[in-house]
Simulated assay, not measured.
Amino acid sequence: MQTKNEVLVNAEHRQPVLVQHFQNVIENNELAHAYLFTGATGSGKEELAMWIAMRLFCRNVQDGQPCGVCDECTRIAAHEHPDVLIVEPDGNSIKVDQVRFLKAEFTKSGVEGNQKIFIIAGAETMTASAANSLLKFLEEPSGSINAFLLASNPNLLLPTVISRTQEVEMQPLAAGELQQQFIDAGVPQHLLPLVTRLTHSPAEATDWLTDDWLGQAATSMWQWLSQLLKPDLMAFPTVATALMPLAKDRSRQRTLLDIMVAGLRDALLENIHEENFTASFPSHSKEVTDLTNGYTKNQLVEITDLGLQSKQLLERNVSFQNVMESLTLKVFDVLSPSK
């Protein structure tokens, strides 16, 4: 949980253009009833939504900015304001009972006023029943209620949900600034290119560094990728012996798949001699070139697409081991000499 000052500072630092935009929107009384904030982890979705809540409730707005120190701002930053409700995934998903709770709250007046704010973090993890349950509010808003759906992967949201919100895409941080944040967080130099591709959140990167999880994940995933591209049947036992011990929960499994996709991207871009791209595995660039020399661009595009599809399978509750083993078979088929 961030302090009140961290919320304001991070919102203004990460998304200054959007902070100014919403400052104008609020001053002109043009705030929509529902927004979908999209962007990578750490891009400032949560901070921007919290900034808006503080701006709407703050008792001492100064030059269009919430003060960050009044009772209203303090309680919002601490997630303790009764009229600013935040829903996060319960385990791997946001469930229908959580949305039913929100719908019940929609029908009530604000505890301390007419305004109510709902922030739904990880909105793309809503189950289909949860998303359908939310649609009624999105279709028929009532009173001074504003909802903010936050999603790192909006492609996993129902189109009907997206169509009933105003989508706002977070602006990416400058690469140099982002890397410096990771250096300050303790990310080793050799992992910086990979981490920069995986997240915009220094806090998330720091979590991955615990017990050298990320270092082991990068090493093990590269082992599997190199076997995959040979192709070498040892890729199958590598899934069980090297990757599965690292795939302890759904969050880690998603990150492993993101590392895999980053490696496949390296293979494709090295093969087509793309200029000015930053490799996620720069120490293996020569090996990647050697491994992909015998393949066509179409083959590498196809296996990269298969890697992306595997992320969707995981979100449909296919086990991580099945996802990886199925992907191995499909890639072997694509890379077979007959192709």
Rank of each mutant, 00 (worst) to 15 (best):
F37K: 00
T38P: 00
L36F: 08
L48Q: 08
M50C: 06
E27A: 15
K45R: 09
M50K: 09
F37V: 01
E47Q: 13
N24L: 10
N24W: 04
H33C: 12
N24G: 06
Q23F: 00
A34Y: 04
A32E: 07
N28T: 11
Y35G: 07
K45S: 03
H21V: 04
L36N: 09
E47N: 11
K45Q: 12
L48T: 01
L48W: 07
L31K: 03
E46L: 11
A34H: 08
N28A: 14
N29E: 15
F37P: 03
T41D: 15
Y35A: 06
V25K: 00
G39R: 00
N29F: 13
Q23M: 07
T41R: 07
A40W: 03
E46W: 07
A34P: 04
E30D: 11
N24D: 11
L31N: 10
N28C: 04
E30P: 01
A40C: 09
A49R: 01
A32H: 14
N28D: 15
Q20Y: 03
E46Q: 12
A40K: 08
Y35K: 03
I26A: 14
K45M: 05
V19M: 11
Q20K: 14
A40R: 05
N24E: 13
Q23K: 09
E47C: 06
A49S: 15
Y35F: 12
V25C: 03
L36K: 06
V25N: 00
E30I: 00
L48P: 12
N28M: 08
E27I: 00
A32F: 06
V25W: 00
S43K: 02
A32N: 13
H21D: 05
V19E: 08
E30G: 08
H33P: 11
T38I: 00
T38M: 02
Q23V: 02
H33K: 05
Q20T: 10
T41N: 15
N29A: 14
E30W: 07
Q20D: 15
S43T: 11
H33F: 11
E46K: 11
E47M: 07
F37S: 05
H21N: 11
Q23D: 10
L36D: 10
G44P: 11
G42E: 10
A49L: 07
L31W: 06
T41P: 15
L48A: 05
A40P: 09
H21Y: 13
F22Q: 03
A34D: 02
L36G: 12
H21G: 00
G39H: 01
G44K: 02
L48Y: 02
L18T: 01
T38E: 09
L36C: 07
N29W: 04
A34R: 01
N28W: 02
G39Y: 01
A40T: 08
G42K: 02
K45W: 05
M50V: 02
A49Y: 08
Q20I: 00
N24S: 14
F22W: 10
K45E: 05
Q23A: 08
E27C: 03
Y35L: 04
K45I: 01
H33V: 03
M50H: 14
F22E: 10
A32Y: 05
V19Y: 04
Y35R: 03
L48F: 08
E47W: 02
N24H: 12
M50S: 13
A32R: 06
A34W: 01
G44H: 06
E27T: 05
Y35D: 07
N24M: 06
E46D: 14
G39M: 01
A40I: 01
H21S: 09
N24Q: 14
G42D: 07
G44Q: 04
